[in-house]
């Protein structure tokens, strides 16, 4: 289990940021890794007193605080209306309600975990991440950076006309995913995010214009095949590389078809 010498409920982001510059200190998210981590932490920094536990829906965007839980994402009417339910779908197979009442958006994203449904979903949403020190950057850029000592303050999802589809394959319903796949069309641009490869999620766009003529069974298949060729995968306990690459193709093709309004996919 993680050992902790000192617990501090931060009174300001600045205080939290300063404390977090010390190597042996750690920011607490949902704390779900408390038992499995063997870290010896000097000061555990808790952001739960900073009002970051709200989803604020404005005219143009959703502002999602770092301490918002996955359960809040699941239940938020505005977010789910905007994503046609894909937001709820991306989190509802994660362990159970109790877990999702604890796991935070900040914790889920900051670790850039390979298995993260949340990272996959926010990549497809083309979200923006606000860091305390580095400022605002795209989720794609954020995902590529290695975790540092900055603080994730909030995530912003801009409301642009879009369609979203989320899928995952799991060996049992509440297991970690064998593969995650989110597809979107925002402002006309297609995005495909694939995670649990098992490496962290990557984003693909329609660079080859395979979907430029619209979504048809053929173009969906072509894009699926393109994704399978392009997205690197590997094997672990939950699935081999070959199976994962097969799933990239299947889920991408189905996702794109559903995006085009075909609810029967392939």
């Amino acid at each position: 289990m993680m050992t902790i010498k000192q617990y501090v409920r931060a009174e300001s982001l600045e205080q939290a940021y300063q404390l977090n510059q010390v190597r042996a200190n750690r920011v607490l998210g949902g704390m779900l890794w408390l038992n499995t981590s063997k870290l010896a932490v000097n000061t555990a920094i808790d952001l739960s007193g900073l009002g970051l536990d709200q989803i604020e829906e404005g005219e143009d965007a959703f502002s999602i605080g770092a301490m918002v839980t996955l359960r809040q994402l699941e239940l938020h009417p505005g977010l789910n209306a905007y994503t046609q339910g894909a937001m709820a779908k991306s989190v509802q197979d994660i362990v159970g309600v109790q877990f999702r009442n604890m796991a935070t958006v900040g914790g889920s994203l900051f670790g850039r975990f390979g298995f993260s449904d949340v990272l996959t979903m926010f990549l497809a949403l083309d979200a923006q991440v606000e860091l305390y020190h580095a400022g605002t950057l795209s989720i794609q850029e954020f995902a590529q950076r290695t975790p540092d000592r900055d603080l994730l303050v909030r995530v912003v999802v801009r409301k642009r006309p879009g369609r979203f589809v989320y899928q995952s394959v799991r060996n049992t319903r509440t297991d970690l995913p064998t593969l995650t796949c989110a597809v979107s069309q925002v402002d006309g641009a297609y995005r495909l995010a694939v995670g649990a490869r098992p490496m962290k999620a990557v984003l693909l766009t329609d660079e080859e214009g395979l979907l430029a003529q619209g979504i048809t069974p053929e173009s969906a298949r072509a894009f699926g095949e393109y994704a399978a060729r392009t997205v690197p995968t590997s094997g672990n306990l939950r699935g081999s590389q070959a199976y994962r690459t097969h799933l990239v193709q299947v889920l991408t093709q189905r996702g794109i078809l559903e995006l085009g309004g075909d609810h029967h996919g392939a």
Binding site: I4, Y7, N35, D46, R71, V97, Q98, N101
Partner: peptide, 26 residues
């Protein structure tokens, strides 16, 4: 030890959470 079983469920401010992965301090 991995937040998978739900046996330790308590209500924190009325919401069900896993007490095995919650610091008492929080």
């Amino acid at each position: 030890e991995t937040t998978n079983c739900g046996l330790c469920t308590v209500l924190l401010d009325g919401k069900p959470v896993l007490s095995c992965a919650t610091l008492a301090a929080r």
